[in-house]
Write a protein that binds this DNA or RNA. Structure first.
Lengths: 328, 328
DNA sequence: TTGAAAGCGATACCAT
DNA sequence: ATGGTATCGCTTTCAA
C-alpha cells in the first residue's frame, strides 16, 4: 500500500542501503546517485516509516506531552508552543490530558513512554518521589514545576508575585486575600511562599483561602469567603479562579474594582475579554512549551550531562480594569 | 534496556510465539503455561513494543487528531472527548494544531498518517477535492464537516439555527445580523444556509456581515458594522465572535441586551463566565470527539462498508443574559 | 561509493 | 498446545 524504501530503491535502480544513505547521510553517496534517489523518493511520495526506523535506531521521533486539563486555556497555549517547536524539529506530539486526576498521571506517562523519546510534563500534580521514579526511566522535562536534578521550565514566581503585590499596595491595599489552587500544584505552593514573603516585606495583611480547584467554579465557590474576610483586594491562584470571583462578586452586587480589586495569574486570552477586564500576571505559555521541547531535545542529545538544564522565564503584570484604588 | 518478548520467553521457559499467544489469544494456550507467562511478564514489567507490533500487524494503536486552533476553547473540548474515548479503546492520540492555516492541513495529515491507524479531522478548512484525495489514502473521520461518502460527526445545524432564530423572534426581533466566520469553514456555510432558510420562513430581515476569523478579535472588528446595520439582534458564527461583539458594544456604550441582543454558537465555558452571560446554542463538543473516535474505530474494523457512517448530534439553546426583548 | 546481510521486537503461519 | 521461521520497513555493519 504505502510506498516503502524498496519501491524507491527499485525506481532509482539502487539498493535500499543507498536510499537510506542518500536521504540521511547525503555526503556519503555520489551526487548523481543521490539526486536520482531523491527524485525517485519525491515522485513516489516516499516518507520513511518512523516506526520501523525507530525499531532500529531506538528513536521514535515522537515526544509525549501531559497536561492536567485542556479545559483551562492556560494549557492549550502551552500545547501550542510544544507543537510548534516539536514540528520545527520534526517531532510529532502525543498528547494526554489527565483531567486533574493526580493518580492517573503516572500510568499515562508509563503508557506514553514506550512510544516517545521523551516527555514534557506540564504542571504535574504527582508527588516528588513518584516523579523521581518516573524520571529514572524516561527522559522528562518539567514545565511549571521544579525538582532537583530534573530539567525544568518555570516562571519567575517570586518576581511575578512581587509585581502583583506592589501593584496592589501602590493602589493603597493593605489587606489582601489569596485564593489558593490545588495543594498538589507546585505553582500554587510557590505562589503561596512568594506571597507570604512579599506580604511580610510590604507589611500587608494576608488572608489565605482555599484550596479550590483551579477552575471558574473554584473562584465562584471561594468568593463569599473572600467577602467575609473584609479585604480590599484578592489574588486568585489563576485567572479562572479570578474570573469566578469576579462573576460571583457581580452577582452579589459587589463592584469591581470600586469595592474590591481582583487580580489573577496566567493572562489567558479570556482575561482581556471580560468586563471589567482582569488584571493579571502574564506567564509565558507558548514560550514555556517551546522551551520545554528545547530542553528535551537537548536532554536527548546529551543524555548524561551532569547538571539538569533549567530555564526561568520572566513574567509581566498586565494592569486592566479589575484593579483600582483601595476604598479606604 | 527495555524488557522484550524474549526476556519474558526466557523467564517463562517458553518460546516467543507462546508469549504472544498467552498475552493476546489466551484461549489458545494451556492455562498453566498462560499463567506462567503472564506472571513472568508482570514481574518483568513487560509491555509489547507497539512500533514493532505495528510493523507486522499494520496497526499502530494510535489515532491522529487535527484541529484548527487550540486557542478556541471549542477545540480543547473536542480533544478531551477524543482522548477519553481513545484511551478507553487503548489508543493513543497524536495531536496537531494547524493554527487556522488551511494550507498546512494536508501536509500535517500526511505526516501523521504514517504513524496512526486513522485520523479524526476536526473542522478541516481544506477544500472538498483535497479532502477527497486524503481520504483515499487514510481512514478519516470528519467532525464538524460533511462530505459525501466520508464518515462524519456533525451537529443538527438547521435545527440549531431554528432554535436561535425562534428565540429572537419570540423576543420581537425582526431585523438580525449574522457575523460570518471563515468562508472555508463548513460550519459557517451550513449556518449561513440554515439562517437564510429560517429567516425566510420567519420573515426576518437578515444582514450578513463578515467574514472574520472565528476569534474574539473577529467579533470586535465586526461590531461597528453590526451597529451601523441598525439591527436589534446579532448572531455570531461562534461564541468567541459573539464575545468580541459584546466587548466592543460595551466599549461603545451600547447596552446588551437593552439596545441589542447577542447570540453565539458553541457554548464554550467562557460564555457563562462573562457579564452579561452569553446566550448561545450549545454544540456537542466532547461528545463529538467521542463519536468521532467511535466512527473511526468502526471504520477500522470494517474498512469496506458501503455506506459511510454519519452521526448527527442534537444541540441546545442556552438562554442567558445577552438576549432580551427587542427595543421596538 | 555501493550492495548484501543481519537484526531491531513482535506476530503470523506452518509444522509438529 | 507449542516452537521455528519468515517477515514487517528500515538502518547499520561489513565487504567489495
Amino acid at each position: 500500500m504505502a510506498v516503502t524504501i524498496k519501491d524507491v530503491a527499485r525506481a532509482a535502480g539502487v539498493s535500499a542501503s543507498t536510499v537510506t544513505r542518500a536521504l540521511t547521510m547525503p555526503e556519503l553517496v555520489h551526487p548523481e546517485t543521490r539526486d536520482r534517489v531523491r527524485r525517485a523518493a519525491a515522485t513516489l511520495g516516499y516518507h520513511p516509516n518512523r516506526a520501523a526506523r525507530g525499531l532500529i535506531t531506538g528513536r521514535t521521533g515522537n515526544i509525549g506531552l501531559l497536561v492536567p486539563d485542556l479545559g483551562n486555556p492556560f494549557f492549550p497555549s502551552v500545547v501550542k508552543g510544544v507543537q510548534a517547536r516539536a514540528h520545527e524539529a520534526d517531532y510529532a506530539v502525543f498528547l494526554a490530558d489527565t483531567d486533574e486526576d493526580e493518580a492517573a498521571e503516572a500510568g499515562l506517562v508509563r503508557r506514553l513512554s514506550k512510544q516517545v523519546d521523551g516527555i514534557v510534563l506540564c504542571s504535574p500534580r504527582m508527588p516528588d518521589e513518584e516523579l523521581r521514579t518516573l524520571v529514572a526511566d524516561t527522559p522528562v522535562v518539567l514545565v511549571n514545576r521544579r525538582i532537583a536534578r530534573v530539567p525544568s521550565v518555570t516562571a519567575e514566581f517570586p518576581d511575578a508575585m512581587r509585581q502583583a503585590v506592589s501593584h496592589l499596595t501602590a493602589l493603597g491595599h493593605r489587606r489582601i486575600a489569596y485564593v489558593a489552587g490545588p495543594r498538589s500544584a507546585w505553582a500554587n505552593r510557590e505562589r503561596v511562599r512568594a506571597l507570604r514573603l512579599v506580604a511580610g516585606e510590604m507589611s500587608v495583611d494576608l488572608v489565605e483561602i482555599g484550596n479550590v480547584l483551579p477552575m471558574f467554579e473554584g473562584g465562584v465557590a471561594a468568593a463569599d469567603q473572600v467577602l467575609a474576610a473584609r479585604v480590599t483586594a484578592v489574588i486568585g491562584f489563576n485567572d479562572l479562579i479570578a474570573l469566578g470571583l469576579l462573576n460571583r462578586f457581580t452577582a452579589r452586587g459587589v463592584a469591581v474594582p470600586a469595592d474590591i480589586s481582583v487580580l489573577g495569574f496566567d493572562d489567558i486570552a479570556l482575561a482581556a475579554m471580560v468586563n471589567p477586564s482582569l488584571t493579571t500576571v502574564a506567564l509565558p505559555k507558548e514560550q514555556s512549551g517551546r522551551a520545554g521541547v528545547d530542553l528535551l531535545l537537548q536532554l536527548l542529545a546529551e543524555p548524561d550531562r551532569q547538571t539538569a538544564a533549567r530555564r526561568e522565564l520572566p513574567t509581566q503584570l498586565m494592569v486592566r480594569g479589575s484593579t483600582g484604588p483601595a476604598n479606604a
